[in-house]
Design a protein around this nucleic acid. Sequence first.
DNA 1: GCACGGTTTCCACTCAGCGGAAGATGGTCC
DNA 2: GGACCATCTTCCGCTGAGTGGAAACCGTGC
Lengths: 242, 242
Amino acid sequence: MATVTSRALALLAAFDEGHRRLTLTALAARADLPIATAHRLAAELVAWGALARTSDGDYVVGRRLWDLGLLAPLNAGLVELASPYLHDLYSATLATAHLAVRDGLEVLYLDRLRGTASVPIVSTVGSRLPLHATGVGKVLLAHAPTEVQQAVLGALTRVTPYTVTQPGTLQRQLAAVRRDDHATTVEEMSLGACSVAVPVRRDDTVVAALGVVVATPRRDRSRLVGALQVAANGIGRELSRT
Amino acid sequence: MATVTSRALALLAAFDEGHRRLTLTALAARADLPIATAHRLAAELVAWGALARTSDGDYVVGRRLWDLGLLAPLNAGLVELASPYLHDLYSATLATAHLAVRDGLEVLYLDRLRGTASVPIVSTVGSRLPLHATGVGKVLLAHAPTEVQQAVLGALTRVTPYTVTQPGTLQRQLAAVRRDDHATTVEEMSLGACSVAVPVRRDDTVVAALGVVVATPRRDRSRLVGALQVAANGIGRELSRT
DNA sequence: GCACGGTTTCCACTCAGCGGAAGATGGTCC
DNA sequence: GGACCATCTTCCGCTGAGTGGAAACCGTGC
């Protein structure tokens, strides 16, 4: 038997990147609730500010959830603190630059500065992508607890024909990431897109990863790694002061 | 009689900028709920991801609200699209740069790039400040519907000794903002801080304001206005394409 | 004017939610 | 080591908050 709270949360969960605005009927269907129940509970969420009603009656996520979301510890200054460095990185490389953290068994993109090159970019702020198929993901996975590594290694899904799906291969790559202090991918997440990423450390702990996405990394690899490390070190220094 | 939904939302509302992590007892007190009730409902919020429990038992806002918050229409690309221009502005001026929108009778800061100058900055991403006492606020107020202007003009609170609190004076300033297409403040929000701001237009509609905070605006006013307008025009052009 | 789809409102029935109390846990002080 | 305190967790009898099908309402299109 569902609780009232779980029903209200089901309404919130009905929204996602592909469903940012919903009619009442669609909202009820996606929340698996009768229309009358959805209507009643949604009215309370609207009154509080968790949802909002557009002028033609559709429901959208309310401003108050934006406010609350900013209080989530993940945003405790990291995005803001890292932003200048992300832009320095962009200026130095003109490539799409990312700041990401590990969230369970996935990469979560906290910030992105989109470059000008026509390289396919699949990430956006708030999106989650596989750890094993992205540069920032490999960095985060290489420094994750053993049980996280084992869980990921046990479920390597193929995203492109070049995605590494053999555990042994990925383990060797992760060891190389720890040794070389950077990771690369070559069309493992998107065809036409390669990436380079480095760890962001607060003292000795890897708390995030910084990466860029380019068409071909091999030519500029050491230059990209250098720029990434300068930016990552700057972020790490400021993190150590807070 | 309170509903279950209102109690659950009261728990979420217990968190704010000054209370990012709360013990169960504090959470219950701030939500005005008995501890047993708070414990039960909070457990459901934790299970869903709206709240999280730290290792020592405290409650914090959960990652899932961060995700949901990103879906709020306000963030539909504006922050990300504007970010490169905000950094261009920073590079050109080395001052703290802001992107803000009007939210009811207040300014809401969507993005901020903190400059290096030692000027007191009171805004942070997500914060709301008065429309009449900030540069971006004056821009947004000058282009707000008449009833918004009248509501604000009827309640001009003093923030510093230099805050404009006489309706006639502010009205003349707003007319000047519309005429000159930029606004300034001089220690009206914080002593030692002055600001310059311009409108960001999508076609002919003012949808945001872009501003910088400096120690003394008079010396660089036209240079700052120029840089702001270049950035605002760039943002506006991209907005017109989406 | 009618049909249709979506939204809003009603209300008899029932079980989910309530919260005080008791127990458990952990930390501090003497 | 024991006493004390504050916080957290769990229990459970009672009852009114919540339920959702059905009807009414509303807007649009033909």
